[in-house]
Amino acid sequence: MKYIHYDGTDVLTGDLIADAVADYAAVLGANTRTDTIAVPSIGDDGALERTTMLVGPASELVVREAPDDELEPEDPSFIRRLRDAAEQCGDQRPVNADGRRRFVGAAEDD
């Protein structure tokens, strides 16, 4: 599980979902574009919900580890939609200073 800190709020979601959101925001930023996404998340009451986020060049997201939970949300179709949208976003790719391969076009994540 991971938290996405967004606009003063912590959004609790699955590891792969949080990483995909951060990567997608970086691609959008590199291409000076924005998008509104409905992120699968866990509400304060523990129920699965969707949290709408506006992501793009001005996004200031922080992703950090959260306590593991057996109810970690997984949503492969949401992640696939982000990957596909990133591929359509433009030719620019964000700087990758940490050396890890980003999800966009990464075969190991397909």
Rank of each mutant, 00 (worst) to 15 (best):
Y3A: 04
I4C: 06
H5V: 14
H5M: 06
Y6E: 00
D7M: 13
V11T: 03
L12R: 12
D15I: 07
L16E: 06
L16A: 10
A18Y: 00
D19L: 10
V21I: 08
V21T: 09
A25K: 10
A26Y: 00
A26M: 12
N31L: 05
T32Q: 12
T32S: 11
T34E: 15
D35M: 05
D35E: 11
T36L: 13
T36N: 13
I37P: 00
A38V: 01
V39Q: 12
S41G: 04
I42R: 12
I42Y: 05
I42T: 14
D44Q: 12
D45A: 14
D45C: 04
D45E: 13
T52E: 15
M53F: 07
G56Q: 08
P57S: 14
E60K: 07
E60H: 11
E60V: 14
V62A: 14
V63F: 00
V63P: 06
R64W: 04
E65G: 06
E65V: 02
A66W: 06
P67C: 04
P67F: 07
D68Y: 06
D69Q: 02
E70S: 11
L71G: 14
E74S: 10
S77P: 00
S77K: 12
F78N: 07
R81L: 10
R81E: 14
E87L: 15
Q88Y: 03
C89K: 02
C89A: 10
G90D: 05
G90F: 14
D91F: 07
R93C: 06
R93D: 08
N96A: 09
A97C: 07
G99M: 06
R102F: 08
F103R: 14
G105L: 03
A106W: 13
A107R: 13
E108K: 08
